[in-house]
Design a protein around this nucleic acid. Structure first.
Lengths: 334, 334
DNA sequence: GCAGTAAAATCAAACTATTGATCAAATGAC
DNA sequence: GTCATTTGATCAATAGTTTGATTTTACTGC
């Protein structure tokens, strides 16, 4: 309830002086130390807190960014929580606030548009997996003058800086690890052409042959689930492929691989090495623990905040890409 | 960029008229339909958006609430994500914004205090597991005039309305289900006196005897992990207890129980039924699927928003408690 | 055509903080 | 003592919206 006015009245000085002292903005005015101290003291005594709205109004800035994230079913992977953690950590203590929304269907994103304008927020961070369905809305937000930064694995549009990681890099990293461990016949299941490309690239570069049944491609949410690993393994066995590793595209898929292998009497990692993606709790709690590639969602969330603020400050920024990190556990025998 | 002023200039009417028309606040003023329409039209044409800060400043309200959540290691349970989902869903379309922070150590919560005053937010929702270490800070926020609602399993303080669920009820629900399935010798591992009480209550009410080795109590984070189930089972076996069910206090613990039982050659649910708590992805993805009690975190987050807004409106609200819900899957033979 | 009333619009203050321009007082030089 | 300069503080405008009080305009009846 204490305003600059109250402090000014209390000490019989002007509001502007109080403002300048409390903000250390003493441009032309070199305030006397005793006056400054009395002002600071009184401010403290009255429990003065800068009124966020008044500052925002005067500055023409909201000191708030919107964060919109695609909901997804893969709860356990902790992806959204990681992004959110990164974002909130990066904003901690900045005084800047964020406003979080989730959407599932494109229409739900559309409904958020009224809130995503420059009179409510200074910028937008959009994160999630599939951006194509909301591209038009996203561009509309951008067009309306709101800076946008995305956290997708692959960039969205030339005009929206993305904090990516490169799906191909993810898989290449896991593949190279498996190959370094001496594995030669590696299976792969994926829902994503970039990831698949990473697989083929790694195999080719190391001169390893790939049979059609070594790869299973399935679009959609199901592709992350355990069942896809089972299909992949059974298909490979049917044609008699003697594989010694499976490069999965998620930790849950890797769990499916491990339990299928156990049922078949194959040991992990002695007979077959397994890797996952996400470095989630699944990977940690699984028995054996799953060697997994982190998509660095927390770091990417934090970086998105940094980039967005740079744009807000008027700098221009480009797409960035972080490097995935490999967390080695027992499943790969590392 | 379009303000009321711009619209007023364009049409040569007063700012206040524009404001009243666009807000449908035509108290004394019964505007002519044609004027009203022209105003609305122009507002739309110029892309007018109400300036959130100006409104907040005038109203002495921030139209923003703070959400502070305790980080915890149990990622996979999706607890924080559920609370956040509930909160953001409940706020969708309200124009109210939320600002999210996480803390781990009590000191980190303390550092958030400068942001938690009535000049930045209208209220605070605090969620997490252990509230005792931050109680003083929480009361300080409350004292400073910021309404607070908590989402803890058990209430914090008489002066802070809580959206709870009752730990005893959680366990009673799972226990009653197991007993209804004909199980008679049920083990239980817990870190929580309320939950333990729920166990004893259910056993007693059904006239079932409890040996000391049927219960394992361990404080702290570890108590939710798979290993506690192993300890519980091994202890019971050492003294020759022939159990037919395990009532776990988390899904991860239940997973530990299932894998330990499998190793021992016991079938789930034929020989031993297992239940968990959280109704998390673990429960869904496990094989067999785990019968689990939901702590209703999403619903509780949404309810917290509702209660907080009631307090902000000046109403007084009391502690609330939702009922847990049982999701039956294969692990209990249901 | 005018009083009286109803309808429709405007006025003006307020919310709080910021900042360049301006004023007043103190100091220094001669 | 006067003028110029430095120092220290105030003025006044501004940001955008809201709202009770007030003024202007329009209409009715005679």
């Amino acid at each position: 309830m204490a305003s600059l006015q109250k402090i000014a009245n209390e000490l019989d000085v002007s509001v502007s002086l109080v403002s300048k002292v409390l903000n250390n903005r003493l441009g032309t005015t070199k305030t006397r130390p005793d006056v400054a101290n009395r002002i600071r003291e009184t401010a403290h005594r009255l429990g003065y807190r800068r009124n966020a709205s008044a500052v925002a109004l005067k500055a023409g800035r909201q000191n708030a960014i919107a964060v919109v994230i695609k909901k997804h079913g893969r709860h356990g992977a902790g992806i959204n929580e990681a992004v959110i953690n990164g974002i909130t950590d990066a904003m901690k203590g900045s005084g800047q606030r964020q406003s979080l929304s989730f959407y599932n269907q494109p229409e739900e994103f559309h409904e958020l548009l009224p809130q995503l304008h420059s009179n409510s927020i200074d910028g937008l961070i959009i994160a999630g997996m599939r951006w194509l369905p909301i591209l038009d809305d996203l561009m509309a937000v951008k067009q309306s003058g709101v800076p946008v930064v995305s956290v997708f694995n692959e960039p969205v549009s030339d005009s929206i800086p993305n904090v990516g990681i490169g799906d191909a890099k993810l898989i290449r990293l896991a593949m190279q690890h498996l190959i370094d461990q001496g594995r030669r016949c590696i299976l792969h299941a994926s829902s994503n052409k970039y990831r698949e490309a990473g697989y083929f690239e790694a195999m080719e570069r190391n001169g390893l042959p790939v049979e059609p049944e070594m790869v299973y491609y399935e679009r959609g949410k199901r592709s992350y689930m355990p069942v896809t690993a089972r299909i992949l393994i059974e298909r490979a066995q049917q044609v008699g492929i003697k594989f010694d590793a499976i490069c999965c595209q998620s930790d849950t898929q890797a769990m499916g691989a491990i339990s299928t292998l156990k049922e078949l009497g194959l040991r992990v990692p002695e007979d077959v090495a397994v890797t996952g993606v996400d470095n989630s709790q699944w990977a940690m709690i699984s028995d054996p623990g799953i060697t997994s590639v982190s998509q660095q969602f927390q770091e990417r969330g934090a970086l998105a905040v940094k980039l967005l603020n740079q744009i807000i400050e008027g700098e221009s920024v480009a797409d960035t890409s972080l490097n995935p990190e490999l967390f080695v556990r027992e499943s790969s025998g590392g």
